[in-house]
Structures are given as structure tokens and as C-alpha cells.
């Protein structure tokens, strides 16, 4: 009985360690190339301004500028729906509101760098923007602008 108890304790500890391990692993990272849109991650994940299709592209470009300037993390939304949180971008010294991040807001980028995964979130340290495709999602034709007050001249304010 004591042996079985010790076995259960060992198994329990092993399970606990195995479950904890992903939280502390990942320091190595791996090199990846990703193509996706530079998005405003707060509006995308929180749904504060509507569904995910409305808070990307030209419809949401001005708000993406506001959020990038506000220091909200920029993500790369890949075609398969994966979001890579961008921790570094070449030419952008400031990853919390820097001009370099504003310059690519809503743009489709092909970029390479180191991928790290931690607690379910993917982070990318971009070392090279291989191609900037510009804004390819012209969804203002479907959604107008989001939020509606983004363009004062259009009667939004």
C-alpha cells in the first residue's frame, strides 16, 4: 500500500511538472517566415468594436494607427487565423507606440524572425520584413469605417 502511495505521489509530481513545463520552456525559439496582416490586437481579441472581419484592413486602419500609437501590441494575423504578437520590428526602436509600427498598420507583411510560444500565445521577434504588400484588405467597402467616428470629414463626429 505504501509502495502504491509513493508511486501515486511520484506520478502526481511528474504530471505537475509536465504541466508546468510549457510555461517555462521556449527560450530557444525557432526561425519562421510568416505572411499576415499587421493588426490592432486589442480590437481583434476583445470584440470591443465588432467581429473580427470588421477590425482589420482599410475599415479599421485609422483605429489601428491609434492603437499602435497608444502602445497596444501589434500582431501579425496569418491566413490560417494565427496571431503572432510582434515584439520587435526592424527599424522600429519602440515596440510600444513607435513610428515603425504605425508605418505598417493594416499592411500585409511577409516577415521572418524568431518564434517563441509561451502559455498559448505566439510571439515573433521579426528580423526582416521580406515584403510589404501594403493594405490588401479593402473592407471599408463592406463595413464603412470602424469605429464610425474614425473619419471626422465623413460625418463621424
Amino acid at each position: 500500500m505504501a509502495g502504491r502511495h509513493r508511486h501515486a505521489v511520484r506520478a502526481g509530481l511528474a504530471l505537475a511538472l509536465a504541466l508546468v513545463q510549457p510555461a517555462t520552456a521556449g527560450a530557444e525559439g525557432r526561425h519562421v517566415t510568416v505572411t499576415g496582416e499587421a493588426i490592432d490586437t486589442w480590437c481583434y481579441f476583445s470584440g470591443v468594436m465588432g467581429g473580427p472581419d470588421a477590425v482589420v484592413g482599410s475599415a479599421h486602419h485609422t483605429c489601428a494607427l491609434w492603437c499602435a500609437a497608444g502602445g497596444i501590441p501589434v500582431g501579425l494575423l496569418a491566413d490560417d487565423g494565427t496571431v503572432y504578437m510582434v515584439l520587435k520590428l526592424p527599424g522600429a526602436d519602440d515596440a510600444a507606440g513607435g513610428r515603425g509600427f504605425l508605418a505598417v498598420a493594416s499592411h500585409r507583411l511577409t516577415a521572418s524572425g524568431m518564434l517563441h510560444e509561451r502559455d498559448g500565445i505566439r510571439y515573433i521577434i521579426i528580423s526582416e520584413v521580406i515584403e510589404d504588400h501594403g493594405i490588401t484588405r479593402r473592407n471599408h467597402e463592406d463595413f464603412g469605417v470602424v469605429p464610425p467616428f474614425a473619419i471626422p470629414e465623413a460625418g463621424g463626429e
Binding site: S58, A59, H61, T62, L65, W66, A69, G97, R99, L102, A103, A105, S106, H107, I135, R138, H140, V145, A150, I151, E153, A154
Partner: peptide, 25 residues
């Protein structure tokens, strides 16, 4: 914000250039 204003001056509110903005407005 000067950074935001500079980007809007360059690419417009939609990011597609001033002509796209004019047509949309």
C-alpha cells in the same frame, strides 16, 4: 498625435491614399 497625423497625411484614413479617402467621404 504627430505620428498619427503624419501617417494619415501620407496614406489617408483608409491607408489607401487621398483619392480613396475622397471617394469614401
Amino acid at each position: 498625435d504627430p505620428r498619427i497625423l503624419a501617417e494619415i497625411a501620407r496614406g489617408g484614413y483608409l491607408g489607401l491614399g487621398p483619392e480613396a479617402d475622397r471617394a469614401f467621404i
